[in-house]
Simulated scan of single mutants.
Amino acid sequence: METEIYHADTIKEAARKIQAGELVAFPTETVYGLGADATNEAAVKKVYAAKGRPSDNPLIVHVADVETVEKYAQPLSDKTRLLMKTFWPGPLTIILNLKPKALSKSVTGGLATAAFRNPRNDATLDLIRQAGVPIVGPSANTSGKPSPTKAKHVYHDLHGKIAGILDDGPTQIGVESTVIDMSGEIPSILRPGGISEEQLTSVIGTVQSDHHKVGKDEIPKAPGMKYKHYAPNAQVLIVRERQWQAAMQWAAQRTERVGIMTTAQVKADYPLPSNGEWYSLGTDVATASRHLFAGLRHFDTESEVAYILAQGFDRIGLGEAYMNRLAKSAGQQYFEIPK
């Protein structure tokens, strides 16, 4: 299969591919998603096959408006409508109870709920409207690898496996959307992302965080809760703020090359060892979140390193989402000062 590259002036062609049951990757403000007609079960199953994704992992349904959600979900609560009014289009995914048999088990993972999102990207909103159907959209990467924030990342993983990629340049946030479960009595954050817990509570009041590890036989309500995610080939080690001097000394003693992902300030304060290769995370946690997955992919595909030392941030605001993804890519491993 030849994978076509689409742009803003060829969205109609990309929409036809979706209508025909083919897969087209699309940009959002967070990461690139792998799109298929959410109402076409055969097309949805192609998503799992292309990604190598376990079929019990539910998919996020991307929509262009609230009216589409109302076709599939049970009546929306006042709090749900307030979230949509405040944060849509944007990096917030909302899990809702479905009408009976509204979407196939291939979309929901067999649950009575589904996750909906209205992305903040004009090209993708146009694609959804022209296709005339809601579009499922897990991250457009090989399952378990760092999520794609550029069209070239998608092409690297999936060329020859999907019909096309809608290229709208690099994504702006770089980590996936916040997932909030509104299907129960108490709103619950299942995945941190571009909308912080503080932002959510300021709009709808109390929310709880549910970051428990999903059991082997348990079906996750949201993506990213069960299986290994975001892992490059090299071992990632998270470096705490006051450990960079020791980390650089440790790296200098390695016989292998070491990737180093930090802000410009850390690089200025702690010179790199001769066997170190730097990848810039910019200036703060916002730019670090935007560049995290691209940096991990750089060391996977363009440079041979055995270790990646990556800068940690405080788990405040966007830092919660950044550290959630970084910790998963590292397998929860932190750099420890040798004794």
Rank of each mutant, 00 (worst) to 15 (best):
N97P: 06
N97V: 06
N97E: 14
N97D: 14
L98H: 10
K99V: 01
P100F: 13
P100N: 12
K101F: 07
K101L: 03
K101Y: 10
A102S: 06
A102E: 06
L103E: 00
S104K: 01
S104N: 07
K105V: 07
K105A: 12
K105W: 04
S106N: 04
S106W: 02
S106T: 08
V107Q: 02
T108P: 02
T108L: 04
G109T: 00
G109E: 02
G110M: 06
G110F: 04
G110N: 03
L111H: 12
L111F: 03
L111D: 05
T113E: 09
T113S: 15
A114H: 06
A114I: 04
A114Y: 03
A115R: 05
F116K: 03
F116W: 12
F116Y: 13
R117L: 12
R117K: 13
R117N: 13
R117F: 14
R117T: 12
N118T: 13
N118F: 14
P119D: 08
P119S: 09
P119A: 11
R120T: 00
R120Y: 05
R120A: 13
N121K: 08
N121V: 00
D122G: 02
A123P: 00
A123W: 04
A123R: 02
T124N: 11
T124S: 12
L125C: 09
D126G: 04
D126N: 15
D126C: 09
D126R: 14
L127D: 05
L127M: 09
L127F: 06
I128W: 07
I128E: 11
R129H: 14
R129C: 13
Q130P: 13
Q130W: 11
Q130H: 14
A131W: 03
P134V: 02
I135A: 07
I135M: 09
I135D: 01
I135N: 00
G137E: 08
G137K: 10
P138H: 07
S139G: 08
S139I: 05
S139W: 04
A140G: 05
N141D: 07
N141R: 09
T142G: 13
